[in-house]
Amino acid sequence: MKIRGVLIEDTFAEAFTMRVARIVITARSLRWVRAAALKLTGFATSVIGCKVEAGIERELVPGETPDGRPGVSVLLMTMGKDDLGKRLIERIGQTVLTCPTTACYDGLPDAPDRVGVGSALRFFGDGFQSSKVIAGERFWRIPVMEGEFVVQEKFGMLKGVGGGNFLILASTADAALSAAEAAADALTSQPGVILPFPGGVVRSGSKVGSRRSKTMIASTNDAFCPTLRAITQTALPDEVNSVLEIVINGTDAAAIETAMRTGIDAACRAGVIAISAGNYGGKLGPHHFHLRKLMSRNSSD
């Protein structure tokens, strides 16, 4: 299969079940919404080293937020249920509570599984905090020097999917970067998904384990490193000189599928030789996204 001359390899992306929370941050202006969201989602690319994967899902207009102010929705994901609560408390406590004018709400109100967040952060109020129950939901008012920080008591969590991906195999580094930027741009504000890596793009795709160290969980994906073509069992066609990866996490498999289809389509452009994907032989992750099956709907040639 080819899309605009770009080979879609007969392979699949292998993804994992994760726990996901959706955090809605509002503030007086988008400036402070973004300030809080960028800190909240900072250093959250991979659970391997960051304990959490997070990203901005989309910006929200005032009519979409609980308090009628500008906002943003963030997805925050971990491998386990208990971990998610801890990470939410740490991150919201350090990055949203501290940020001027913000408030923080649950973005998964229908999720039956709920974890206490405001109920833990309230103790920062040192006994001066108070709560209000509005429409059946409790919100904590924590006094701060600026005024009050409002945070919802409990946040919903769902089973999500992490590790949806595709690889852009290009003839030059510029072509790979240009295609990756196009893919990341196409996925901006796509509901239900985040791209947790910088700018939505990964240059350091990894394989499981290490040749040299037994303690390393992951190491460089040498089969896709052009500089190692001559000294390793390469997976790269001859014309390929640079590879970039798009990693996609989402609230469910359907959201990942839609995003992969959109992203791959955007990445199929001049200078790109092939689109591939990362997997572990299908043995580790329960979610398999077959590229050709995904793209069969909108292949152009």
């Binding site: 609980p66 308090d67 009628g68 102010r69 408030a103 209000k132 509005i134 429409a135 919100f139 008012r141 005024g147 009050e148 409002v150």
Partner: peptide, 17 residues
């Protein structure tokens, strides 16, 4: 004198409900 954010939630509820 300030702008209590929780009142926006409460007043929105009174208006909409």
């Amino acid at each position: 004198t300030y702008q209590p954010i929780h009142l926006r939630l409460l007043l929105t509820r009174l208006r909409d409900q």
